[in-house]
């Protein structure tokens, strides 16, 4: 029976169970007459992509979550630590927000400014809610009560070597000004386990500078991510009340509070997990 119902799901719901199907529909709150949301997300493409990310989420990285009950309603800025060379951590967080948050939310990622020039990929990004990382885009989304996901460390976070794992790099401050301007709560999240999936031992800085790439990881275990066990620990939402045009030093103090709460979740999770990177649950 299990096989039959599984087959039915695959055929009728494109690999999603009825419940997952319904959760995606619930997350899409602003569809227009043509069936698209104001930023070009198509529920059909989103569901098709979710089918493959669910496999990564459940079967490959066996993601556990903690603290998803902390997700507030309305506009939201999710701030996480970036790790693991490739932006799969963002995909896992977005998947958890769709599958496990109540109500389900579509967490929109911010992609690089050269991404719209890539054929096919740019279209797929747009249909799944990935938007060019731009002040105006982000502001518009938050003003319309959407959920945006940012990694203020940027490439210095995702590209760091295994020797610096779980060390938070410098945070950019743009996200904090946006949060203050739009009065958006910040939800800190710590991803534990993905740092070891692609253990880079060098960024090959000189070579990557020459070819214009942000980093070129040298990974002795190969370029297929290892099936480490990933835990996402969501902290308490942080609400700040300060003028958005405060001085840089004032903003940096607030950013440090966000950084601190992510670091706290990381430390706590790592203490629980220990060195069991393939099996250890960090909650």
């Amino acid at each position: 029976m299990g096989f039959l119902s599984n087959l039915k799901n695959r055929l009728i719901h494109g690999g999603l169970t009825e419940e997952e199907h319904e959760r995606v529909s619930r997350a899409m709150t602003q569809l227009n007459s043509a069936g698209f949301d104001p930023w070009g997300v198509s529920p059909e493409t989103l569901k098709a992509s979710l089918a493959s990310s669910i496999w990564l989420y459940r079967k490959y990285f066996r993601v556990e979550t903690k603290g998803l009950e902390n997700v507030p309603e309305g506009r939201l800025l999710i701030v996480g630590n970036h790790s693991g060379q490739v932006p799969i951590d963002g995909m896992l967080i977005a998947t958890s927000m769709l599958l496990e948050a109540n109500p389900p939310r579509l967490a929109r990622g911010m992609v690089e400014r050269w991404a719209p020039a890539l054929p096919f990929i740019s279209t797929w990004f747009a249909r799944c809610g990935q938007i060019t990382g731009d002040y105006h885009n982000c502001k518009e989304l938050l003003e319309r009560d959407e959920c945006v996901m940012v990694f203020p460390e940027g490439v210095s976070g995702s590209g760091k070597t295994i020797f610096h794992r779980y060390e938070l790099q410098r945070f950019g401050t743009g996200f904090m000004r946006l949060a203050l301007e739009t009065k958006t709560p910040i939800l800190p999240v710590a991803a534990i386990g993905f740092e070891e999936a692609l253990p880079s031992i060098s960024k090959l800085s000189k070579l990557s500078k020459r070819v214009g790439a942000p980093y070129l990881p040298l990974i002795p275990t190969g370029y297929l991510p290892l099936p480490t066990k990933v835990t996402l620990r969501f902290g308490q939402p942080l609400r700040f009340d300060a003028p958005a045009d405060a001085s840089d030093s004032a903003i940096e103090q607030l950013v440090d509070q966000v950084k601190f709460s992510i670091q706290k979740e990381l430390d706590e999770g790592l203490r629980i997990r220990g060195e069991r990177i393939f099996t250890g649950v960090a909650k």
Binding site: N32, S33, A34, F36, P38, W39, G40, T123, R127
Partner: peptide
């Protein structure tokens, strides 16, 4: 107008 729509979808419609 009312909404936004991908170009190919508009062509089909």
């Amino acid at each position: 107008g009312e909404g936004v729509i991908p170009f190919t979808k508009a062509v089909e419609m």
